[in-house]
């Protein structure tokens, strides 16, 4: 099947995750091979996903862990887990 750009955009997320079925994947790849626009959409979407996954985007608040474990200490010292 010959895909147009819109078809390819609609499948971009599944393409990135590798969840398209092989025939559709081959059609998408055929389109990408000659379409600069869709190639740029694919690469930039991938790029955004890589950047988002980076721990530097959202850092834990300073001393988050320290405050958490201090609070836990109080609770662990005085409470046992609920019975089932």
């Amino acid at each position: 099947m010959v895909l147009n750009c819109r078809h390819v955009w609609d499948r971009i997320s599944d393409y990135i995750d590798g969840t398209l079925d092989p025939a559709v994947r081959a059609d998408v790849e055929k389109h990408l091979a000659h379409c600069e626009i869709c190639s740029a959409v694919l690469d930039s979407t991938r790029n955004v996903i890589v950047l988002m996954a980076d721990d530097r985007v959202f850092e834990l608040p300073v001393d988050f862990s320290k405050r958490l474990h201090a609070r836990l200490d109080q609770v662990l010292a005085t409470e046992r887990p609920d019975p089932v």
Partner: peptide, 26 residues
């Protein structure tokens, strides 16, 4: 519909050292 950018260039992960870049993503 995605942004169509024919002159798009990859943003390297090192760019995340810059707070403005992180802020845009956030």
């Amino acid at each position: 519909t995605p942004a169509v950018l024919t002159d798009w260039r990859e943003v390297p992960s090192d760019a995340l050292e810059r707070k403005e870049i992180c802020a845009l993503i956030q």
